[in-house]
Design a protein around this nucleic acid. Structure first.
Lengths: 226, 226
DNA sequence: AACAATCACATTGTCGACAATAAACACTAG
DNA sequence: CTAGTGTTTATTGTCGACAATGTGATTGTT
Protein backbone atom coordinates (compact mmCIF):
# COMPACT_ATOMS: atom_id res chain seq x y z
CA UNK A 1 0.00 0.00 0.00
CA UNK A 2 1.05 3.56 -0.63
CA UNK A 3 1.48 4.37 3.02
CA UNK A 4 4.00 1.70 3.74
CA UNK A 5 7.09 2.95 5.39
CA UNK A 6 9.79 3.52 2.77
CA UNK A 7 12.49 2.92 5.38
CA UNK A 8 11.18 -0.49 6.35
CA UNK A 9 13.53 -3.21 5.22
CA UNK A 10 12.20 -6.11 3.20
CA UNK A 11 9.95 -8.50 5.07
CA UNK A 12 11.84 -11.77 5.16
CA UNK A 13 11.52 -13.45 8.51
CA UNK A 14 8.27 -14.71 10.00
CA UNK A 15 8.63 -12.28 12.88
CA UNK A 16 8.56 -9.53 10.25
CA UNK A 17 5.28 -10.81 8.86
CA UNK A 18 3.66 -11.05 12.26
CA UNK A 19 4.96 -7.57 13.09
CA UNK A 20 3.36 -6.23 9.93
CA UNK A 21 0.04 -7.91 10.66
CA UNK A 22 -0.03 -6.69 14.24
CA UNK A 23 1.02 -3.22 13.10
CA UNK A 24 -2.03 -2.96 10.87
CA UNK A 25 -4.25 -4.54 13.49
CA UNK A 26 -3.21 -2.00 16.10
CA UNK A 27 -3.33 0.98 13.75
CA UNK A 28 -6.81 0.06 12.59
CA UNK A 29 -8.01 -0.81 16.07
CA UNK A 30 -8.63 -4.51 15.49
CA UNK A 31 -6.38 -4.96 18.50
CA UNK A 32 -7.91 -2.37 20.77
CA UNK A 33 -5.93 0.55 22.18
CA UNK A 34 -5.11 0.08 25.84
CA UNK A 35 -5.80 -3.63 25.75
CA UNK A 36 -3.48 -6.11 27.39
CA UNK A 37 -1.51 -8.46 25.18
CA UNK A 38 -1.46 -12.15 26.08
CA UNK A 39 1.63 -13.79 24.65
CA UNK A 40 0.33 -17.37 24.73
CA UNK A 41 -2.97 -16.35 23.18
CA UNK A 42 -1.47 -14.32 20.33
CA UNK A 43 1.19 -16.92 19.66
CA UNK A 44 -1.54 -19.48 19.19
CA UNK A 45 -3.56 -17.10 17.02
CA UNK A 46 -0.68 -16.45 14.62
CA UNK A 47 0.47 -20.08 14.89
CA UNK A 48 4.01 -19.18 15.91
CA UNK A 49 6.18 -19.75 18.91
CA UNK A 50 6.33 -17.29 21.77
CA UNK A 51 9.92 -16.40 20.92
CA UNK A 52 8.92 -15.25 17.48
CA UNK A 53 5.99 -13.34 18.85
CA UNK A 54 8.21 -11.59 21.37
CA UNK A 55 10.49 -10.59 18.53
CA UNK A 56 7.51 -8.95 16.83
CA UNK A 57 6.45 -7.32 20.10
CA UNK A 58 9.90 -5.81 20.46
CA UNK A 59 9.53 -4.09 17.10
CA UNK A 60 6.12 -2.79 18.06
CA UNK A 61 7.67 -1.43 21.21
CA UNK A 62 10.30 0.32 19.11
CA UNK A 63 7.43 2.14 17.36
CA UNK A 64 5.96 3.10 20.73
CA UNK A 65 2.81 1.18 19.84
CA UNK A 66 3.00 -1.11 22.86
CA UNK A 67 4.51 -0.73 26.32
CA UNK A 68 6.09 -3.46 28.38
CA UNK A 69 6.55 -3.90 32.11
CA UNK A 70 8.94 -6.49 33.47
CA UNK A 71 7.21 -9.62 34.74
CA UNK A 72 3.83 -8.10 34.00
CA UNK A 73 3.33 -7.95 30.26
CA UNK A 74 2.59 -5.69 27.32
CA UNK A 75 -0.25 -3.28 26.67
CA UNK A 76 -1.24 -1.42 23.52
CA UNK A 77 -0.76 2.31 24.04
CA UNK A 78 -3.80 4.40 24.94
CA UNK A 79 -5.24 6.89 22.47
CA UNK A 80 -5.73 10.05 24.47
CA UNK A 81 -6.23 13.62 23.34
CA UNK A 82 -3.24 14.62 25.42
CA UNK A 83 -1.13 11.98 23.70
CA UNK A 84 -2.21 13.19 20.28
CA UNK A 85 -1.32 16.79 21.08
CA UNK A 86 2.06 15.66 22.40
CA UNK A 87 2.79 14.04 19.06
CA UNK A 88 1.87 17.19 17.19
CA UNK A 89 4.31 19.16 19.31
CA UNK A 90 7.09 16.73 18.44
CA UNK A 91 6.12 16.77 14.78
CA UNK A 92 6.15 20.56 14.69
CA UNK A 93 9.72 20.56 15.95
CA UNK A 94 11.07 17.63 13.94
CA UNK A 95 9.29 18.14 10.65
CA UNK A 96 10.04 21.83 10.82
CA UNK A 97 13.71 21.02 11.06
CA UNK A 98 13.39 18.30 8.43
CA UNK A 99 11.91 20.89 6.11
CA UNK A 100 14.82 23.27 6.75
CA UNK A 101 17.29 20.48 6.04
CA UNK A 102 15.34 19.46 2.94
CA UNK A 103 15.72 23.00 1.58
CA UNK A 104 19.48 22.57 2.02
CA UNK A 105 19.99 18.95 1.04
CA UNK A 106 17.32 17.96 -1.48
CA UNK A 107 18.57 17.30 -4.98
CA UNK A 108 17.02 19.18 -7.88
CA UNK A 109 15.53 15.93 -9.09
CA UNK A 110 13.83 15.30 -5.78
CA UNK A 111 12.30 18.77 -5.88
CA UNK A 112 11.00 18.19 -9.39
CA UNK A 113 9.47 14.93 -8.26
CA UNK A 114 7.74 16.60 -5.34
CA UNK A 115 6.26 19.24 -7.59
CA UNK A 116 4.86 16.65 -9.95
CA UNK A 117 3.44 14.74 -7.01
CA UNK A 118 1.66 17.83 -5.83
CA UNK A 119 0.29 18.45 -9.34
CA UNK A 120 -1.11 14.94 -9.28
CA UNK A 121 -2.75 15.64 -5.93
CA UNK A 122 -4.26 18.79 -7.38
CA UNK A 123 -5.90 16.79 -10.13
CA UNK A 124 -7.38 14.09 -7.97
CA UNK A 125 -8.46 16.75 -5.52
CA UNK A 126 -10.35 18.63 -8.22
CA UNK A 127 -11.96 15.40 -9.38
CA UNK A 128 -13.27 14.25 -6.03
CA UNK A 129 -13.69 17.54 -4.24
CA UNK A 130 -14.39 17.33 -0.58
CA UNK A 131 -13.59 13.68 -0.39
CA UNK A 132 -10.67 13.69 1.93
CA UNK A 133 -9.53 10.09 2.14
CA UNK A 134 -7.17 10.24 -0.77
CA UNK A 135 -6.08 13.66 0.36
CA UNK A 136 -5.13 12.04 3.64
CA UNK A 137 -2.85 9.62 1.85
CA UNK A 138 -1.52 12.45 -0.25
CA UNK A 139 -0.83 14.38 2.91
CA UNK A 140 1.24 11.54 4.33
CA UNK A 141 3.05 11.11 1.02
CA UNK A 142 3.95 14.78 1.04
CA UNK A 143 5.30 14.72 4.55
CA UNK A 144 7.23 11.54 3.85
CA UNK A 145 8.94 13.10 0.85
CA UNK A 146 9.99 16.15 2.83
CA UNK A 147 11.36 14.03 5.65
CA UNK A 148 13.32 11.83 3.27
CA UNK A 149 14.54 14.97 1.54
CA UNK A 150 16.26 16.09 4.72
CA UNK A 151 18.85 13.37 4.07
CA UNK A 152 19.26 13.14 7.83
CA UNK A 153 19.11 9.52 8.89
CA UNK A 154 18.24 10.30 12.48
CA UNK A 155 15.30 12.46 11.48
CA UNK A 156 14.13 9.84 9.02
CA UNK A 157 14.34 7.06 11.58
CA UNK A 158 12.46 8.89 14.28
CA UNK A 159 9.74 10.32 12.07
CA UNK A 160 9.15 7.56 9.52
CA UNK A 161 10.27 4.66 11.68
CA UNK A 162 8.32 5.29 14.83
CA UNK A 163 6.27 8.47 15.03
CA UNK A 164 4.27 7.99 11.85
CA UNK A 165 2.77 4.70 12.90
CA UNK A 166 1.36 6.49 15.91
CA UNK A 167 0.05 9.29 13.70
CA UNK A 168 -1.70 6.79 11.48
CA UNK A 169 -3.14 5.04 14.53
CA UNK A 170 -4.68 8.25 15.80
CA UNK A 171 -6.00 9.15 12.36
CA UNK A 172 -7.65 5.76 12.00
CA UNK A 173 -9.14 5.50 15.45
CA UNK A 174 -10.27 9.09 15.86
CA UNK A 175 -11.56 9.10 12.29
CA UNK A 176 -9.98 12.42 11.45
CA UNK A 177 -10.94 13.27 7.90
CA UNK A 178 -9.41 16.69 8.10
CA UNK A 179 -11.69 19.40 6.66
CA UNK A 180 -8.56 21.42 6.00
CA UNK A 181 -8.03 19.66 2.68
CA UNK A 182 -7.89 22.65 0.34
CA UNK A 183 -6.11 24.83 2.87
CA UNK A 184 -3.53 22.13 3.54
CA UNK A 185 -2.96 21.79 -0.17
CA UNK A 186 -2.10 25.47 -0.54
CA UNK A 187 0.25 25.25 2.42
CA UNK A 188 1.99 22.30 0.84
CA UNK A 189 2.53 24.33 -2.33
CA UNK A 190 4.13 27.22 -0.49
CA UNK A 191 6.39 24.86 1.43
CA UNK A 192 7.67 23.33 -1.78
CA UNK A 193 8.27 26.78 -3.20
CA UNK A 194 10.39 27.67 -0.19
CA UNK A 195 12.36 24.45 -0.56
CA UNK A 196 12.86 25.10 -4.28
CA UNK A 197 14.13 28.58 -3.38
CA UNK A 198 16.56 26.90 -0.97
CA UNK A 199 15.16 29.12 1.76
CA UNK A 200 15.55 26.84 4.79
CA UNK A 201 14.45 29.39 7.34
CA UNK A 202 11.16 30.09 5.56
CA UNK A 203 10.60 26.42 4.79
CA UNK A 204 10.91 25.53 8.46
CA UNK A 205 8.59 28.32 9.53
CA UNK A 206 5.92 27.34 6.99
CA UNK A 207 6.06 23.69 7.95
CA UNK A 208 5.78 24.54 11.63
CA UNK A 209 2.76 26.73 10.98
CA UNK A 210 1.25 24.01 8.80
CA UNK A 211 1.49 21.45 11.58
CA UNK A 212 0.52 23.88 14.30
CA UNK A 213 -2.62 24.77 12.29
CA UNK A 214 -3.44 21.09 12.10
CA UNK A 215 -3.03 20.81 15.85
CA UNK A 216 -5.20 23.84 16.54
CA UNK A 217 -7.81 22.41 14.22
CA UNK A 218 -7.95 19.32 16.36
CA UNK A 219 -8.03 21.33 19.57
CA UNK A 220 -11.04 23.25 18.25
CA UNK A 221 -12.81 20.07 17.22
CA UNK A 222 -12.26 18.67 20.68
CA UNK A 223 -13.46 21.72 22.51
CA UNK A 224 -16.62 21.69 20.35
CA UNK A 225 -17.38 18.15 21.41
CA UNK A 226 -17.29 19.09 25.09
CA UNK B 1 25.83 7.34 38.56
CA UNK B 2 24.54 10.83 38.06
CA UNK B 3 24.11 10.45 34.34
CA UNK B 4 21.84 7.48 34.50
CA UNK B 5 18.69 7.88 32.56
CA UNK B 6 15.92 9.05 34.88
CA UNK B 7 13.34 7.45 32.64
CA UNK B 8 14.91 4.00 32.81
CA UNK B 9 12.73 1.63 34.77
CA UNK B 10 14.22 -0.33 37.62
CA UNK B 11 16.68 -3.02 36.59
CA UNK B 12 15.06 -6.26 37.60
CA UNK B 13 15.58 -8.93 34.96
CA UNK B 14 18.93 -10.33 33.91
CA UNK B 15 18.41 -8.99 30.41
CA UNK B 16 18.24 -5.55 32.00
CA UNK B 17 21.58 -6.04 33.70
CA UNK B 18 23.27 -7.24 30.54
CA UNK B 19 21.71 -4.33 28.67
CA UNK B 20 23.16 -1.93 31.20
CA UNK B 21 26.61 -3.49 31.02
CA UNK B 22 26.63 -3.48 27.23
CA UNK B 23 25.31 0.08 27.20
CA UNK B 24 28.28 1.27 29.19
CA UNK B 25 30.67 -0.89 27.19
CA UNK B 26 29.46 0.58 23.92
CA UNK B 27 29.33 4.16 25.18
CA UNK B 28 32.86 3.92 26.54
CA UNK B 29 34.17 2.08 23.52
CA UNK B 30 35.05 -1.20 25.24
CA UNK B 31 32.88 -2.73 22.56
CA UNK B 32 34.24 -0.88 19.57
CA UNK B 33 32.06 1.24 17.31
CA UNK B 34 31.32 -0.42 14.00
CA UNK B 35 32.30 -3.85 15.26
CA UNK B 36 30.18 -6.90 14.55
CA UNK B 37 28.38 -8.54 17.42
CA UNK B 38 28.63 -12.30 17.75
CA UNK B 39 25.66 -13.63 19.67
CA UNK B 40 27.23 -16.94 20.72
CA UNK B 41 30.43 -15.21 21.83
CA UNK B 42 28.74 -12.51 23.90
CA UNK B 43 26.27 -14.98 25.39
CA UNK B 44 29.20 -17.02 26.64
CA UNK B 45 30.99 -13.91 27.91
CA UNK B 46 28.03 -12.76 30.00
CA UNK B 47 27.19 -16.36 30.92
CA UNK B 48 23.61 -16.11 29.72
CA UNK B 49 21.52 -17.80 27.06
CA UNK B 50 21.22 -16.39 23.57
CA UNK B 51 17.54 -15.56 24.12
CA UNK B 52 18.41 -13.29 27.01
CA UNK B 53 21.23 -11.70 25.06
CA UNK B 54 18.90 -11.05 22.15
CA UNK B 55 16.50 -9.35 24.53
CA UNK B 56 19.32 -7.04 25.58
CA UNK B 57 20.29 -6.47 21.95
CA UNK B 58 16.75 -5.42 21.18
CA UNK B 59 16.93 -2.70 23.81
CA UNK B 60 20.25 -1.51 22.44
CA UNK B 61 18.65 -1.35 19.04
CA UNK B 62 15.86 0.77 20.49
CA UNK B 63 18.56 3.28 21.54
CA UNK B 64 20.01 3.21 18.01
CA UNK B 65 23.28 1.93 19.42
CA UNK B 66 23.30 -1.22 17.30
CA UNK B 67 21.80 -2.08 13.92
CA UNK B 68 20.46 -5.43 12.85
CA UNK B 69 20.09 -7.07 9.48
CA UNK B 70 17.93 -10.13 9.02
CA UNK B 71 19.90 -13.36 8.79
CA UNK B 72 23.15 -11.42 8.99
CA UNK B 73 23.57 -10.04 12.48
CA UNK B 74 24.12 -6.92 14.54
CA UNK B 75 26.76 -4.22 14.34
CA UNK B 76 27.56 -1.40 16.72
CA UNK B 77 26.80 1.93 15.05
CA UNK B 78 29.69 3.83 13.49
CA UNK B 79 30.92 7.07 15.00
CA UNK B 80 31.22 9.46 12.09
CA UNK B 81 31.43 13.22 12.02
CA UNK B 82 28.41 13.29 9.75
CA UNK B 83 26.46 11.19 12.24
CA UNK B 84 27.41 13.50 15.09
CA UNK B 85 26.27 16.58 13.19
CA UNK B 86 23.00 14.82 12.34
CA UNK B 87 22.35 14.30 16.02
CA UNK B 88 23.00 17.94 16.78
CA UNK B 89 20.44 18.94 14.16
CA UNK B 90 17.85 16.72 15.81
CA UNK B 91 18.77 18.00 19.25
CA UNK B 92 18.44 21.60 18.12
CA UNK B 93 14.90 20.92 16.98
CA UNK B 94 13.75 18.70 19.83
CA UNK B 95 15.44 20.37 22.77
CA UNK B 96 14.42 23.75 21.45
CA UNK B 97 10.83 22.62 21.51
CA UNK B 98 11.32 20.92 24.87
CA UNK B 99 12.55 24.22 26.23
CA UNK B 100 9.50 26.04 24.89
CA UNK B 101 7.24 23.45 26.49
CA UNK B 102 9.21 23.64 29.73
CA UNK B 103 8.53 27.37 29.87
CA UNK B 104 4.85 26.54 29.65
CA UNK B 105 4.60 23.41 31.75
CA UNK B 106 7.31 23.47 34.41
CA UNK B 107 6.06 23.88 37.96
CA UNK B 108 7.45 26.69 40.08
CA UNK B 109 9.15 24.11 42.27
CA UNK B 110 10.93 22.60 39.30
CA UNK B 111 12.19 26.02 38.27
CA UNK B 112 13.49 26.69 41.76
CA UNK B 113 15.26 23.35 41.73
CA UNK B 114 16.90 24.12 38.40
CA UNK B 115 18.15 27.46 39.67
CA UNK B 116 19.70 25.88 42.73
CA UNK B 117 21.30 23.24 40.55
CA UNK B 118 22.85 25.93 38.41
CA UNK B 119 24.13 27.73 41.51
CA UNK B 120 25.79 24.50 42.55
CA UNK B 121 27.40 24.21 39.15
CA UNK B 122 28.65 27.77 39.48
CA UNK B 123 30.41 26.87 42.72
CA UNK B 124 32.12 23.74 41.52
CA UNK B 125 33.03 25.52 38.32
CA UNK B 126 34.75 28.31 40.25
CA UNK B 127 36.60 25.74 42.34
CA UNK B 128 38.02 23.71 39.48
CA UNK B 129 38.22 26.25 36.73
CA UNK B 130 38.96 24.94 33.28
CA UNK B 131 38.46 21.35 34.32
CA UNK B 132 35.55 20.38 32.19
CA UNK B 133 34.67 16.84 33.23
CA UNK B 134 32.27 17.80 35.94
CA UNK B 135 30.95 20.56 33.73
CA UNK B 136 30.16 17.90 31.17
CA UNK B 137 28.04 16.03 33.69
CA UNK B 138 26.50 19.28 34.80
CA UNK B 139 25.71 20.05 31.19
CA UNK B 140 23.87 16.78 30.77
CA UNK B 141 22.06 17.29 34.07
CA UNK B 142 20.88 20.69 32.88
CA UNK B 143 19.59 19.41 29.59
CA UNK B 144 17.89 16.49 31.30
CA UNK B 145 16.03 18.79 33.67
CA UNK B 146 14.79 20.96 30.82
CA UNK B 147 13.62 17.95 28.85
CA UNK B 148 11.80 16.47 31.83
CA UNK B 149 10.32 19.92 32.48
CA UNK B 150 8.57 19.82 29.13
CA UNK B 151 6.18 17.26 30.65
CA UNK B 152 5.86 15.81 27.16
CA UNK B 153 6.30 12.06 27.33
CA UNK B 154 7.15 11.70 23.64
CA UNK B 155 9.90 14.30 23.87
CA UNK B 156 11.23 12.70 27.03
CA UNK B 157 11.26 9.24 25.51
CA UNK B 158 13.03 10.24 22.33
CA UNK B 159 15.60 12.51 23.94
CA UNK B 160 16.36 10.77 27.22
CA UNK B 161 15.50 7.26 26.13
CA UNK B 162 17.44 6.98 22.92
CA UNK B 163 19.25 10.07 21.69
CA UNK B 164 21.22 10.79 24.82
CA UNK B 165 22.97 7.46 24.87
CA UNK B 166 24.28 8.31 21.43
CA UNK B 167 25.36 11.76 22.59
CA UNK B 168 27.27 10.24 25.49
CA UNK B 169 28.86 7.73 23.14
CA UNK B 170 30.18 10.45 20.88
CA UNK B 171 31.40 12.51 23.83
CA UNK B 172 33.27 9.55 25.24
CA UNK B 173 34.83 8.32 22.05
CA UNK B 174 35.69 11.65 20.47
CA UNK B 175 36.94 12.93 23.83
CA UNK B 176 35.09 16.19 23.58
CA UNK B 177 35.92 18.18 26.69
CA UNK B 178 34.17 21.24 25.41
CA UNK B 179 36.22 24.40 25.92
CA UNK B 180 32.95 26.28 25.92
CA UNK B 181 32.52 25.64 29.64
CA UNK B 182 32.10 29.20 30.88
CA UNK B 183 30.20 30.31 27.80
CA UNK B 184 27.84 27.37 28.08
CA UNK B 185 27.23 28.20 31.72
CA UNK B 186 26.11 31.72 30.89
CA UNK B 187 23.82 30.40 28.19
CA UNK B 188 22.28 27.98 30.65
CA UNK B 189 21.55 30.87 32.99
CA UNK B 190 19.77 32.90 30.36
CA UNK B 191 17.72 29.89 29.33
CA UNK B 192 16.51 29.37 32.87
CA UNK B 193 15.63 33.03 33.12
CA UNK B 194 13.50 32.75 30.01
CA UNK B 195 11.76 29.68 31.42
CA UNK B 196 11.17 31.45 34.74
CA UNK B 197 9.65 34.37 32.79
CA UNK B 198 7.39 31.81 31.07
CA UNK B 199 8.66 33.13 27.74
CA UNK B 200 8.46 30.00 25.62
CA UNK B 201 9.43 31.66 22.36
CA UNK B 202 12.61 33.14 23.78
CA UNK B 203 13.44 29.97 25.68
CA UNK B 204 13.26 27.93 22.49
CA UNK B 205 15.37 30.40 20.56
CA UNK B 206 18.06 30.50 23.24
CA UNK B 207 18.22 26.73 23.52
CA UNK B 208 18.48 26.35 19.75
CA UNK B 209 21.32 28.87 19.63
CA UNK B 210 22.99 27.12 22.54
CA UNK B 211 23.00 23.79 20.74
CA UNK B 212 23.80 25.30 17.36
CA UNK B 213 26.82 27.02 18.94
CA UNK B 214 27.93 23.67 20.29
CA UNK B 215 27.59 22.17 16.83
CA UNK B 216 29.53 24.96 15.17
CA UNK B 217 32.22 24.58 17.79
CA UNK B 218 32.62 20.97 16.75
CA UNK B 219 32.59 21.85 13.07
CA UNK B 220 35.41 24.32 13.67
CA UNK B 221 37.41 21.78 15.63
CA UNK B 222 37.03 19.29 12.82
CA UNK B 223 38.02 21.69 10.06
CA UNK B 224 41.13 22.60 12.07
CA UNK B 225 42.18 18.99 12.21
CA UNK B 226 42.10 18.66 8.44
C1' DA C 1 -18.39 -9.25 57.69
C1' DA C 2 -13.95 -7.28 56.56
C1' DC C 3 -9.15 -7.74 56.25
C1' DA C 4 -4.81 -10.34 56.00
C1' DA C 5 -2.06 -14.12 54.87
C1' DT C 6 -1.35 -18.16 52.18
C1' DC C 7 -1.72 -20.98 48.31
C1' DA C 8 -2.70 -22.21 43.52
C1' DC C 9 -2.70 -20.66 38.93
C1' DA C 10 -1.47 -18.15 34.93
C1' DT C 11 1.91 -15.32 32.69
C1' DT C 12 6.44 -13.82 31.77
C1' DG C 13 11.60 -14.65 31.76
C1' DT C 14 15.19 -17.89 30.64
C1' DC C 15 17.23 -21.89 28.69
C1' DG C 16 19.15 -25.35 25.31
C1' DA C 17 18.35 -27.62 20.81
C1' DC C 18 17.00 -27.71 16.00
C1' DA C 19 16.11 -25.57 11.32
C1' DA C 20 17.14 -22.10 7.86
C1' DT C 21 19.93 -18.82 5.93
C1' DA C 22 24.30 -16.54 4.62
C1' DA C 23 29.27 -16.31 4.45
C1' DA C 24 33.77 -18.67 3.59
C1' DC C 25 36.28 -21.97 1.38
C1' DA C 26 37.80 -25.20 -2.02
C1' DC C 27 37.53 -26.92 -6.43
C1' DT C 28 36.93 -26.96 -11.33
C1' DA C 29 36.77 -24.89 -15.83
C1' DG C 30 38.12 -21.34 -19.01
C1' DC D 1 45.65 -17.12 -12.88
C1' DT D 2 40.96 -15.76 -12.57
C1' DA D 3 35.99 -16.47 -12.43
C1' DG D 4 32.29 -19.17 -11.29
C1' DT D 5 30.14 -22.90 -8.77
C1' DG D 6 29.32 -26.32 -5.22
C1' DT D 7 30.12 -27.57 -0.51
C1' DT D 8 31.06 -26.76 4.15
C1' DT D 9 30.71 -24.17 8.24
C1' DA D 10 29.25 -20.76 11.27
C1' DT D 11 25.58 -17.64 12.49
C1' DT D 12 20.95 -16.33 12.96
C1' DG D 13 15.86 -17.53 13.29
C1' DT D 14 12.56 -20.52 15.50
C1' DC D 15 10.79 -23.81 18.65
C1' DG D 16 9.10 -26.15 23.00
C1' DA D 17 10.07 -26.78 27.97
C1' DC D 18 11.34 -25.21 32.52
C1' DA D 19 12.00 -21.60 36.21
C1' DA D 20 10.67 -17.28 38.40
C1' DT D 21 7.52 -13.82 39.20
C1' DG D 22 2.95 -11.57 39.67
C1' DT D 23 -2.16 -12.20 40.26
C1' DG D 24 -6.30 -13.78 42.05
C1' DA D 25 -8.91 -16.80 44.96
C1' DT D 26 -9.50 -19.12 49.24
C1' DT D 27 -9.17 -19.60 53.94
C1' DG D 28 -8.44 -18.18 58.51
C1' DT D 29 -8.61 -14.61 61.98
C1' DT D 30 -10.29 -10.37 64.26
Amino acid sequence: MALDNPTTQAVVTTADKVFDQMLHAIVEGTIKAGSKISEPELAKHYEISRSTLREALNRLEKCHLIERKANVGSRVVECSIAGLLEIYVVREALEGMACRQAAINMTDDEIIEMKSMLAQHANSKALRDGVSYYQEEGDLDFHYKVILGSHNQQLINILCGQLYHLVRMYRCQFGMNSPRATKAFDEHSRIIDAIADRDGELAEMLMRRHIAASRKNIENKISQQL
